[in-house]
Amino acid sequence: MSVPFVRAPGYGRPVEEDVELIGGVEKREIRIVEYDPAWPEHFRAEHERIATALGTTARRIEHVGSTAVPGLAAKPVVDIGVSVPDVAAESTYLGPLQQVGYQLRVREPGHRMLRTSARDVHVHVYDVGSDRERQHLLFRDWLRRDESDRSRYARLKCELAGREWADMNAYAAAKGPLIGEILARAEAWGTFP
């Protein structure tokens, strides 16, 4: 079942309505844990699996999101950014990723999100050179560098995790204003890697 929903404005993006949520809305517990030094190794294993499945179609495979920031509390879900030449050309990457165990969860303009059945890995696929790619990397790099914003982000996530949410997207939307504020500072600081 596919259900359209309004997406959180994460990484400074405007709210989008043209989104397909595969499987419908999910109510899940939001659990924030202390940084786990095993997350980078988990990423490396998933990187290998993705690189083997996609070959040269994957132009960039990066550890993104909170688990990519040493010392940052996070949901125990490793986020991976995969840049491809054309995210709309699903035939070039979707089948190979599904064959190695990833399941499509989100389809929206310029972005697909797949995840493992254990829901401990999210793979974000977007166009190489896109704003989404740049913002994921810039946000990660800024939080790795700036202790004040890293602490503010961690506090907000912990506070929000203590609330009841109808679905994960409402939690993500609540982080949007702070993410936008932090991303503005990151944009002033850095350039696309």
Rank of each mutant, 00 (worst) to 15 (best):
S2H: 10
V15H: 10
G180Y: 07
I179F: 09
D131Y: 08
G55W: 04
K157D: 05
R163V: 05
G12K: 12
L138I: 13
V121A: 06
V121Q: 03
L183Q: 14
D127V: 09
A173I: 01
L114D: 00
G65E: 03
T92L: 09
S83V: 00
M168R: 14
A68V: 01
P14V: 12
P76N: 07
P193A: 13
D167Q: 00
Y11G: 00
L183G: 10
F5D: 05
A154K: 02
P4H: 03
V87M: 03
Q135I: 14
R132C: 06
L21R: 07
M168F: 12
G190M: 09
R144C: 15
S66L: 09
V6R: 14
V64M: 02
R145H: 12
A172C: 14
L156W: 06
H42R: 14
D146C: 12
E16Y: 04
N169P: 03
V6E: 13
A170W: 02
S83R: 03
L97V: 06
R119N: 12
Q99K: 10
T191Y: 05
E133F: 02
G12A: 13
L72G: 01
L160P: 05
V125T: 08
G180A: 11
P70H: 08
T67H: 07
G162P: 04
D127K: 10
V3I: 09
P96E: 07
Q103A: 14
P76I: 01
L183C: 14
K157F: 06
E147S: 11
E147R: 12
I179S: 14
V3M: 09
G101F: 02
S130P: 05
P14G: 12
A68H: 01
L160T: 01
A45Y: 07
V82W: 06
L183E: 10
M168K: 15
L138H: 02
V87G: 00
L94C: 06
I50M: 02
T191R: 12
A184D: 14
F43I: 02
V33S: 13
Q98M: 15
W189L: 15
R150W: 08
Q135C: 12
L183R: 12
R140W: 10
G55I: 03
P9V: 01
E181I: 00
I32C: 03
V64W: 00
E133Y: 00
T92G: 04
